[in-house]
Amino acid sequence: MSMQKMRKPLGAAGVHAILGAYTVLALWPIFLVIANSFKERKAIFRDPLALPTIDSFSLIGFEKVLGKSSFGLYLFNSLSVTLITLAIVLLIGAMAAWALSEYKFKGNTLLSIYMAIGIMVPIRLGSVSILQLIVDLDLTNTRTALVLVYVAQSLPLAIFILSEFMRQIPGDLKEAARCDGISEYGIFFHIILPLVRPAIATVGVFTMVPIWNDLWFPLILAPSPETATITLGVQQFIGQYVTDWNSVLASLTMAILPVLIIYLIFSRQLIRGITSGAVK
């Protein structure tokens, strides 16, 4: 009721029009990539906005990418780096958020501020020292290096968002569990985590997308053919003089699929109202 009242000045139609326009705008490049990946090279240039027709249809890009390049390896690299980072960030982030939001201890505020700084300062500013550190640790050209950097990059925001959500869980619930004889770990894993599932899913998406799309750190930390991620691998089709657009577009199309699947898994968790009925 109150929501509808708030929308009055714009009207439902207006809201839908704006959101619809934005959706078209956001999906347009993706549509272009996918549509053109199924076209012949000439057709791509002749009419980039056209859908593939019987004449212009071609799978040459996919054939080249799957056949000749190490696309499978790149995909594996991207997936393993992203998923391992995701797992570490979600577990450690949730535990840290729980500690910061639930327990009073010395340095709690200081730690929270430190995390907030981590959100505000872009990690790329530290690229040089990160590179030095990775070299010193002898981790260049390893996926471990990427995972470490990505975990550092994603943790602050994850902790920030999750601790906000955890603060909203009614205190009575935790105290009831304590009286129920549940250990602090038990409370965290069996009560807090299930209740912040939507938040975890949100954080998961926010963490995953920039990592999957990142070109910078793979380029400076792990550029070897064995450790290249998809975004880096695609670069080999982009030359100084000629660019193999069929292969580029085909790889990009295939690179969308895994994130799409992970995203769908997370978005199922974003269902609201799971806390209703906990406390009146």
Partner: peptide, 14 residues
């Protein structure tokens, strides 16, 4: 060895 019942019930919602 105590058990507490809260005003807000505090049932585990999930």
């Amino acid at each position: 060895g105590i058990a507490m019942v809260f005003q807000s019930y505090a049932l585990y919602p999930h």
